[in-house]
Design a protein around this nucleic acid. Structure first.
Lengths: 139, 139
DNA sequence: TATAATATATATTAGAAATACATATTTTAA
DNA sequence: TTAAAATATGTATTTCTAATATATATTATA
């Protein structure tokens, strides 16, 4: 049970940009700061922009910028949208489920409740909560 | 964010065996019932036996049997022990962590709390709760 | 002693995440 | 107007790990 690096990078990018002056930076700057692939990060940023969390500006002097108030960005919502698959077990997706005991098995209900609690707990916090000290982030 | 099939199969095996007369069955029987690889299931069963959840008997007439009272087997504990990796993000494991903002980043604390809530929720339920109707399981 | 079961180690396969590469597009500033 | 600097996008490759397969060993009983 893990989050993908895609989600991890997405959160880290928002944290970085949110802590920057004017809430802006370039993808290259973020990739360099974390020592991760710029090409991979481009896709994460692209997804964040699709979701409306980031504004991108092409061309010279362009870059990325947070599109929403960091105190309004709930972490649970972010995770739910960035994760490629929140189906905890096979039978969460009725299309591909092959489990023979689905009918009488209660496990899925408990897993659903637990996953919901996971997201709810994360939703107690916002992006703004994640960075305790903006200066320290760049130390 | 998903459980591995290994964990899924482990839970299903316990459910199956727990619903059987005398709480016993053979690996082959369980594998056939779910239509999954017997060889793979052998490893799951082996792990369950290492953890003390299942007793195995070799030889003719042998098989597997639940080693504990199903009403005492909490699902959260099971999941925690069956999952190969409960490190939600890279920085959960200080040995392999490379993230540069670990010092000032609060995300890990929130993720830790949320994961704990996930496990706690599952621990409200036991293996005995998962099977509503033993007969239905084999319908 | 043959058979039916689990135990164990190793090899292989499959799938998905992560990364790399190449090229297109856009915008600005010289 | 053109070069440069940024993101956009599609495809290919690599890497990792879960899942599966294979082979053999061990054990116990009929």
């Amino acid at each position: 049970m893990q989050l993908t690096r895609f989600t991890d990078y997405g959160l880290r990018t928002l944290m970085y940009v949110g802590a920057r002056a004017e809430n802006s930076a370039s993808v290259k700057e973020v990739a360099d700061h974390y020592g991760i692939s710029r090409n991979h990060l481009v896709k994460v940023v692209h997804r964040l922009s699709q979701l409306g969390y980031i504004e991108t500006t092409k061309g010279k002097g362009g870059g990325i910028k947070i599109a929403k108030d960091a105190t309004k960005l709930r972490l649970g919502d972010l995770i739910k949208q960035l994760e490629p698959n929140m189906n905890m077990v096979e039978c969460f997706d009725t299309k591909t489920n092959t489990c023979r005991i689905t009918g009488s098995c209660q496990l899925k209900h408990y897993l659903f409740e637990a996953t919901q609690n996971f997201i709810n707990t994360m939703n107690k916090y916002t992006l703004a909560d994640t960075v305790q000290n903006k200066e320290l982030l760049f130390a």
